[in-house]
Amino acid sequence: MAEPAVWTRDLTKRFGDFTAVDRVSFEVRAGEIVGYLGPNGSGKTTTIRMLLGLLRPSAGEASVLGYDVRRETERIRARVGYMSQKFALYDELSAWENLTFYAGVYGVKDTAALQRAVDLVGLAQVKDERAAALPIGWRQRLALATAIVHRPTLLILDEPTSGVDPVARRAFWDLIYALADEGVTAFVTTHYMDEAEYCNRVGVMRRGRLLAMDTPTALKRMALPGLAWDVRAEPLLEALEVLEGAPGVLRAGLAGDHLRAITSRGVRASDLRRALRGRGLQVRLVAKVEPTLEDVFLALAAD
């Protein structure tokens, strides 16, 4: 697997004065599941659209499956499965009709291939229902099925789980893993911080810039400037105020019935206890915890 499935170098897209994607460089190796994490409007969709030749890059280079995104668009499109944010389904058509339509457009004649897609995503029971009548979890699966009818080697999924509940999301990721087992490379954007944990590697986007790309574990180790803590103290909201002002505390926030703090590396549990007790608060627990990708994101965004 010498050739990466996707690579970009200083890929840039400007709309007038606005730079939607700003000198982004990364690689997706064949067989990987790579996440592209960022809030709405951070440039995720624009990046994907450039990879698919839907938008012309303003600067920089990119290639998908060895083809240039500017010149060899049609070759890329024939080999890539794409699932756009809106789930491109025709509401008046049944699930099966949607599938046969996309199969026809891709020139797939073999109904066995369609059946395979149906079986894989588990659509058999809703095959004849109109797309409009399907709940969002099923629509999402159907959209995935339409994106894989032509057996693409690379899947590009733009916020595939947006608006889908946690249970359906979990099931959807199981499907992605099943496809990965068959050797499919997946490039998935998401704004769910917790969802990025499903990916082999994660790129963090903000305001058009790719801030970092690595495994979730490495990101937590490298990107976070300090330590993450769970703090339980009474009364909670006063404790939050104290923590926000304590020396060494970079960030503190409410985490339900307790507080979460990010501090610089030198800080010890006893420092935090002392600060809280000094203001007459009851301290129940101060424990070092594993940071989340949201902690990572906030740390990267602060630079």
């Binding site: 809030p39 709405n40 965004a301």
Partner: peptide, 16 residues
């Protein structure tokens, strides 16, 4: 939903 975590942080501060 879908808001920048930095913005979300600000929103939560208000709620607190």
């Amino acid at each position: 939903g879908g808001v920048d975590p930095v913005t979300r942080q600000g929103f939560w501060q208000l709620v607190i």
